[in-house]
Amino acid sequence: MIIPHPLLGPRDAQEFVYLGDASLMNRPDGMTAGIEAFHDWLYQRDNPAGIHRELWYHEQGDRSWLVVTRNTLTHEILGAELARDVARAMGRTK
């Protein structure tokens, strides 16, 4: 597969490490959330046949974590964003 890196253009997926569902970005706050919330966040996943947002790490590249949108039925990659930008857009800024 080829992943369209937002900074580096098309790169072979062999350079990346796959983590999983991008919902992992929504980590609960460990000071306020309890075991149930952490459990659901860590273990409960959708398994969509179709569009899936997932985390990939450009380990053999610029070390960026990306949010890649992929169609699990066709492997077509519909986009890739820097995870840091996505996280900040989710409000993770000081």
Binding site: L24, Y57, S64, W65, R84, R88, R92, T93, K94
Partner: peptide, 19 residues
């Protein structure tokens, strides 16, 4: 060594980009 480094990048980019 490699997986810890990957984990640290994950934490600083994805979980706590404000740091």
């Amino acid at each position: 060594a490699v997986t810890v480094f990957r984990h640290l990048e994950y934490c600083r980019q994805v979980l706590w980009p404000e740091m």
